[in-house]
Design a protein around this nucleic acid. Structure first.
Lengths: 241, 241
DNA sequence: CGGCTCATTGACCAACGTCAATGCCGGTGG
DNA sequence: CCACCGGCATTGACGTTGGTCAATGAGCCG
């Protein structure tokens, strides 16, 4: 099933019947490929489709006055990028691919119809936007309140938990197709300093990133170091440890 | 009508019939008073009620490991504090009063029943959580990407727009019952530095805060200075200027 | 091999944090 | 009515985290 990772995510909230799954899958339209660093939707758009990420990583971002980019969320397979557009008039931010992506597009109205008729799915999708909001709150805490090394550590902890929930990890490692510059843009720091943070975490024996592969050498210790508490992810599989 | 400010807010999204309004009002329970600096809900709770703020200001916050508090949202009259709890299992943060508050409590199940039966209200309430999320994204941009004086300026612009939407402004001034320390906790800075930011904005002739009353001397210029674009608030009344 | 993007390094700098003192104001008890 | 107290705003001197600038490497691809 194309939408398997989404199903996997939604079932953390509520079990879905085969019929529910089929209904959702049937609402899907085309699968589209997107090259790295391309916009999927831009700020100001009134998109006609909702996008489900099937492969690759993407991000929400805004471009600021001085040209800086602020990344506000990372999107991984199973993430619906923009359920908003079924309710909000216009995109207040852009969504762009980080790596090469495969995307399933849902015609907006067809998804709205599904939610109109199937309350279980509606609740599940609403739930997923609430989890996105919870993640955003934790990002704010992270950026506003923690020193830079812990920020990076916390982000890595979050991403391995989310990646694991959709089956994208191996032991304590996963692919993170994101440059240090992009990481810096998401955590409110400079690329130079992001690099220094990586050095620190490696020096402490907490992680050993090689290229785009992040290997966490000691997850419990990294979680402790980064003050990471997975409660905010509202995952059923609470404990990874 | 007790829930007038909420109605006023929801109707930015969609007009509601008298019947809709009555349905929503009827779901409400008791009106409760809360002294300043009291928790309304605490992290980890599974609350039985959804809270609608009728009077006063409150905030979402988390306490961090080192005892610092991070405020993640300000809540003003008309704001539903925790629609989440109809779907998320447990509170991942706390909500506390800043000033004395009056709160209308909705028994969780009764609100869920309303949404079950009335799709228009369900959509309106979902919409309001999506707007909350949009505000949160902008806070992240603000804290991660703007220098401290613009952060404060941006927050003030946001709050006067939100206050105006529920009729709580007079010309370009409004009551902000929040200490500089609380503001600092929301913008990721220290109270000392928050004070310096106030001095700058006053010195530039942008605002003139006297006690808890904020007077904006030149709103267009403050918006320009703070890089404030109200799009993210998704208000119908876009322009204040 | 040349040219690209990205990671890494070092020297220096500024925004913001820390610490500690002082002032202001409203509330309260004598 | 007035003195005292407690919370908050304000100020100044100084310290530190993280930003800036600019150069060097390392890996990849045509």
């Amino acid at each position: 099933m194309k939408i398997a990772p989404l199903i996997q995510k939604l079932e953390q909230f509520q079990a879905l019947s085969d019929e529910d799954k089929q209904t959702l899958e049937a609402a899907g339209g085309n699968v589209v490929s997107l090259a790295p660093k391309q916009d999927m939707i831009s700020q100001g758009d009134r998109p006609e489709h909702v996008h489900l990420l099937l492969e690759g990583w993407a991000c929400r971002y805004k471009i600021m006055r001085n040209g800086d980019r602020q990344i506000m969320a990372y999107l991984i397979p199973g993430d619906l990028c923009d359920v908003h557009v079924t309710l909000l008039d216009r995109m207040d931010h852009s969504i762009g691919s980080l790596s090469a992506c495969k995307i399933l597009t849902f015609p907006r109205q067809r998804l709205a119809d599904v939610m109109e008729k199937n309350k279980k799915l509606l609740r599940a999708l609403w739930w997923s936007t609430l989890v996105d909001e919870a993640i955003l709150r934790e990002w704010l805490v992270n950026v506003a309140g923690r020193p830079s090394e812990k920020r990076l550590g916390h982000l890595i902890c979050e991403m391995i938990h989310r990646a694991r929930a959709v089956g994208l990890t191996e032991d304590d490692s996963f692919d993170m197709p994101v440059t240090q510059e992009e990481l810096a843009d998401s955590m409110g720091m400079t690329p130079v300093h992001m690099n220094r943070c990586f050095q620190t975490l490696r020096g402490e024996g907490l992680i050993s990133a090689e290229g785009k592969r992040v290997v966490i050498d000691n997850l419990p210790r990294l979680m402790e170091f980064s003050e990471f508490d997975p409660l905010y992810l509202h995952q059923v599989t609470k404990a990874l440890v």
